[in-house]
Design a protein around this nucleic acid. Structure first.
Lengths: 159, 159
DNA sequence: CCTTGACTGGGCAGATTGCCCAGTCGACAT
DNA sequence: ATGTCGACTGGGCAATCTGCCCAGTCAAGG
């Protein structure tokens, strides 16, 4: 299960040059086209690769400010809060967590001033007891997956 | 600047069905193929769409546990800590933030037990004073961008 | 020794891509 | 009002790629 070395190389290749087709990929990897097709099909049907959605930069859309908000929820209001946050476009991501807060969400805004509006909209909902926000200043490691893919590919090679 | 309504529709379409080509997209959107090509080129050169990297699911790779760690850094150690965390494959993302902690990072692990190993590796570095970790239980809103794209497209339409 | 699954190497028709062109249309400046 | 410029349309062309199929090899497991 998981992925083998060839899968790893394929994913890394796709990550680096997403626009290449199956044929070109097979050349780069030194395998037959059918093999690449089969691997891709398997990776997708197994859910390892969910898709190839466009990677949109919120900053380029006019939302250069990112923040993380930790929310504390009133008992039993979880579902309502989730539904509420789902309706806010600036909420890019929402997790329920263990620890001090109950939920953690990623927000974006047009400016620091605009962030206030977003936060007001987020917390302006009965059921949210308290919120603490951390504004992102720098993003030294943007969301990445390749190192993990390589790790996973290594592991299966060793075994 | 930003994006107009057609850009928005194009991005949403690509997000829903990433495998369609330029020709198919132009049919769906009811515009000429050249227009779609031009829009895609512009979106990419403007950096709105960074690329079409494969969307890999860490869980399917054998890393079903996600956590967020807030790190407190010793003065002046920022650069070293960043470099350190970059070498840890399980660190998917790292931000420097305002607020109580100094950094926030997203981690994945093979299990709750494995998370301990990852955290040890992350914080086992001189320069990190304190770390508090929140394990993700549920992910009601997976990373999404479409609502924001639609919002941005609306805004430009109104103006 | 046989079966199974994965991979190779090749073929084929149909669809798509990259590229180019002329003409239309609306916004904007002179 | 006139001219210019950028964006979009509709079409064409050669080269390439895709989806699909097939036979043969090879290693692993029974």
């Amino acid at each position: 299960m998981a992925i083998d070395h060839l899968d790893g190389r394929l994913i890394v290749l796709l990550a680096r040059e997403p626009r290449i087709g199956v044929l070109e990929a097979s050349r780069r990897l030194g395998v037959a086209r059918g093999t690449v097709q089969a691997r891709m099909d398997r990776l997708q049907s197994q859910g390892v690769v969910r898709g190839f959605g466009p990677d949109v930069d919120p900053a380029a859309l006019g939302y250069p400010v990112t923040a993380f908000a930790t929310l504390e929820i009133k008992q039993g209001q979880g579902a309502d809060v989730r539904a509420h946050l789902t309706t806010v476009p600036e909420v890019l991501e929402l997790h329920t967590t263990t620890g001090h807060g109950d939920m953690l969400c990623r927000l974006v805004a047009r400016s620091n001033a605009d962030l206030q509006r977003v936060i007001d909209r987020v917390v302006g909902f009965e059921g949210i007891v308290r919120a603490s926000t951390a504004i992102v200043m720098e993003n030294p490691v943007p969301l990445r997956i390749i190192p993990l893919v390589e790790q996973a590919a290594q592991d299966s090679r060793d075994s």
